[in-house]
Design a protein around this nucleic acid. Structure first.
Length: 471
DNA sequence: TGAAATGTTGGGGCG
DNA sequence: ACGCCCCAACATTTC
């Protein structure tokens, strides 16, 4: 009888290019795959939907042998090891504080049961410990981080398939559906619509990559900023749950091609975010730049609600927030615009934006999400300076010139002419009437005035610097 | 991976 | 021909 290895799946829900599996195959051990939904690890409402369907897809790939559990990870693994004769355990690492702590506990449980542990990195191109500066400290600026570590390197996948891997069929019935009510309840009408938009799972991730490499990437440099175009990969939820590896994606790119290289650099921004989180466990909670701890945020609940619902009166902001609610996704350019609006024009703390995104984004990822909110707020590493305040009207005109994106998500203003689509308040009464728009009724007036709110934010920032100088 | 204010230049209209 | 003004088109600076 062959050696038995327990494979603990986490955010690596794939069978291709997964080191826990390919190394098991090389060691010729039989594997028992498990997944544990641990309430200690927070997961947003929207990504729950994805997780459930992704697990289903993984279970299919594993010939229906995936066993799932709900509860405290180390306790559950302890139980499993008590009742079975495993001699090995294997998993892929994660980089947020909670997950790292859980890993530590599991390591101890494994030791207690005298198991051999096989622990890998299958989610990052490079381990954070391999990307330190010469002086041994982590990078704080993206460009040198990128140039020193990631360019001039070849990327390849470890193994394409796991044909021949011996799967242990559990004596217990497959229990995947026990998670359905927790993750993707049938009666949830918000989730139901995602079905028409997304197809979670490894195969679909690969299909999507292929499509992107055929079409979208060829004009990526320009098109990536255009929410009205289809130039982005939309792989983010697949990547988040590890349905496709970043090694696989990178191995398909030609880094001498400008469009490819730009896309690659976006993948490395993901690496950068994970590094920031790894070396700053409090990234989701605390300003990386401490001087912002004294910033006079105006955390107005009703303003926050208007932003969340897409009722700010600025079409590009509202379209983005509604795209998020409708589809569980928002175009990257628009994420920056709505972020800037929340943090600067409304002066609401970035943690509220982070919370909302965590709950409603399909690709919600604690590393990317917190690093990016700190970036947009100007409080992070290599961040956009606080005084870089986006003007939602000019951003709209620049990146959605025909208003196609805005019209798609805000149908009530879709009859406005291009000239006024990004700022209905400017529209002459006669024309706005003809378009069937009644400001304040069918579509809100702008909730804040741009010039005023911009100057308010700049003044607060200026005073902050003064306060921090004097103490 | 901004935007607005301010500064500079140069052409055209005009007395 | 000249100075003057206006203003667009850039460039630079500032937040």
């Amino acid at each position: 009888m062959s050696t038995k290895c327990l494979i603990w799946f986490r955010q690596d829900l794939r069978i291709r290019d997964n080191l826990t599996l390919s190394s098991s195959l090389r060691r010729r051990v039989a594997i028992a795959p498990i997944f544990i939904l641990d309430p200690a690890v927070e997961i947003g409402s929207c990504s729950k939907y994805w997780l459930f369907h992704s697990l289903k897809s993984l279970n299919n790939s594993l010939n229906n042998t995936l066993q799932v559990y709900h509860g405290d990870t180390s306790e559950i693994i302890d139980e499993i090891l008590k009742e079975n004769d495993f001699s090995e355990i294997s998993w892929n690492k994660m980089y947020d504080d909670k997950s790292k702590k859980i890993e530590e506990k599991v390591k101890n449980i494994a030791k207690k049961h005298q198991l051999k542990s096989y622990i890998y990195n299958s989610s990052l191109l490079l381990e954070p410990s391999k990307t330190l500066k010469k002086d041994g400290t982590p990078y704080k600026v993206f460009t040198p981080f990128y140039r020193q570590n990631f360019l001039n390197r070849k990327y390849h996948t470890d193994a394409q398939a796991i044909d021949g891997l011996e799967l242990i069929t559990s004596s217990a019935a497959n229990n995947l559906n026990s998670l359905k009510d927790i993750l993707a309840p049938k009666k949830d009408s918000w989730m139901r619509k995602f079905h028409n938009i997304w197809e979670p799972g490894e195969d679909s991730a690969h299909k999507k990559l292929e499509e992107f490499l055929k079409i979208g990437i060829n004009d990526y440099e320009e098109g990536r900023n255009r929410p009205d175009k289809l130039n982005t990969s939309r792989l983010s939820p697949h990547i988040h749950f590890g349905e496709i590896s970043v090694n696989k994606i990178s191995s398909c790119l030609n880094l001498n091609n400008k469009n490819h290289e730009r896309y690659f650099s976006e993948l490395v921004w993901r690496e950068f975010s994970h590094n920031l989180l790894h070396y700053n466990p409090e990234l989701p909670k605390k300003n990386l730049q401490h001087k912002f701890n004294n910033f006079p945020w105006i955390n107005n609940k009703s303003h926050l609600k208007k932003w969340q619902r897409g009722l700010t009166g600025y079409p590009i902001v509202d379209a983005g927030m509604r795209e998020l609610w409708e589809t569980g996704y928002m175009h990257n350019r628009v994420r920056m615009i709505v972020g800037s609006f929340l943090v600067k024009n409304l002066m609401i703390h970035w943690k509220y934006g982070l919370e909302w995104f965590s709950d409603t984004l399909m690709d919600a990822d604690i590393a990317n999400n917190s690093a990016s909110w700190q970036w947009v707020a100007g409080t992070g590493a290599d961040a956009a300076p606080y005084f870089r305040i986006f003007n939602p009207i000019t951003q709209g005109q620049k990146f959605d010139p025909e208003g196609l994106y805005v019209r798609k998500f805000i149908p009530e203003i879709s009859n406005l002419p291009n000239k006024y689509i990004h700022f209905p308040s400017d529209c002459p009464t006669e024309i706005i009437k003809q378009s069937g728009v009644i400001l304040g009724k069918t579509y809100p007036f702008p909730m804040v005035e741009l010039k005023y709110s911009r100057e308010r934010a700049l003044l607060a920032f200026k005073n902050l610097n003064k306060i921090n100088q004097s103490c």
